[in-house]
Amino acid sequence: MKLFIKLTHMESIIQGKAYVLGKNIDTDQIIPAEHLVYSLSNPEEVKMYGKYALSGVPLEQGGLPEGGIPFVSEGAHTSPYSIIIAGPNFGCGSSREHAPFSLKVAGARAIIAESYARIFYRNCVDGGFVIPYETSQQLNKLILTGDELSIDMKNNTITNLTQNVTYQLRPLGSVVDIVQAGGIFEYARKNDLMAKSQA
């Protein structure tokens, strides 16, 4: 049985500024390994994940098409950009859940990429960090860093408010229920899976 949660209007829209990247953004670029020593639960240490989010991306390849724009400015631990637009194979590389976690801490709410690496995708969904949407178009060639975007989760569309154009996104498919529940544990509790899986 699929769990259907009715989204309210407020919950079904994600609005924010775009941060545009290229292809094969691996987890070492999302959060370089030297920073993985920090706690993911201590509130002070958690800020370090925001500070270093996407800090491994070579400078000229961050904030396309111009490049040279850091996701998080020097001295800050949150980003002015909340929607990441990227090419294929986003999140390839290591299994570190610190990667989607750091994006969330920095303030990202959704990613729109042509495709994802499996472990990163699972981590986004099961950990309830950021929503990983897929697109069949090369949106990272059409959207500019800084454009104001609005994602309509009910209709699976993204509107570029700056350029006044709307694109279709792939439906989240079978993971939509986990995304709406906010992660695998919330989903499992709602569906009584924790009790069943422990039986």
Binding site: E97, I119, D126
Partner: peptide, 10 residues
């Protein structure tokens, strides 16, 4: 196969 922390905790 590799997994993240949340899946591992599960």
């Amino acid at each position: 196969s590799g997994i993240g922390n949340t899946d591992a905790a599960f």
